[in-house]
């Protein structure tokens, strides 16, 4: 076993355990902190997959911005962990559906075959040109229309959030 396999195993075990903690922790704050750990593990995987820009925005956007927003909301709502209140429902059915999802994905993986066509972006080119520059070149030429549409989406999200969070709509 080489070092990258060992490292992959360790990080994936941490990712799965912290994902399970997100589901099982009763206190939402503990769930949020476990989710941040999962996001850091995913950022590690992106770095291992020669995608440093993706790793950086995973940490900045997900583990930073989105999780701060979630933790802030949990604190703002000030939910007391009520001991005599159930925090789970439909547990057997949920686990059955989750296992069916896993088996479906597993059967796709077992029967399908990923094409081995070699692309143009090899690790060599990523190291020479730089990952951010390559992503930017693709995004601002081939994907310029989706990029512009994204700005309209963000504007709609800002307006929607402000209107929804107002206390009385009048």
């Amino acid at each position: 076993m080489d070092i990258s396999t060992i490292f992959f195993t360790i990080v994936s075990v941490v990712a799965v355990v912290s994902a399970l903690l997100v589901v099982t922790c009763k206190n939402p704050i503990n769930s949020a902190l476990s989710l941040i750990l999962t996001f850091f593990c995913l950022a590690t995987f992106y770095a291992m997959l020669e995608a440093p820009f993706m790793a950086a925005i995973q940490v900045i956007v997900y583990a930073g911005a989105i999780m701060v927003l979630i933790v802030f909301t949990i604190m703002l709502l000030n939910i007391r962990a009520d001991a005599n209140k159930k925090s789970f429902h439909n547990v057997p059915l949920g686990i059955v559906v989750g296992i069916i999802t896993l088996l479906t994905a597993g059967s796709f993986l077992a029967r399908g075959k990923v094409s081995d066509l070699p692309g143009q972006i090899t690790p060599n080119i990523i190291h020479q040109v730089g990952h951010t520059e390559l992503i930017g070149a693709v995004m601002f030429t081939e994907f310029i229309l989706p990029f512009e549409i994204t700005s309209i989406l963000l504007l709609a999200a800002i307006v929607g959030a402000v209107i929804l969070a107002k206390r009385n709509l009048s």
Binding site: A19, V22, V23, T38, I70, L77, I95, G98
Partner: peptide, 26 residues
Amino acid sequence: AVLFSIGTIGVLVRRNIIVMFMCIEL
């Protein structure tokens, strides 16, 4: 696939909507 299934279970099993939301992020 494992992480996706854990997220699915979380959405179906939890009652707190913020935790359900976090499972969707997962």
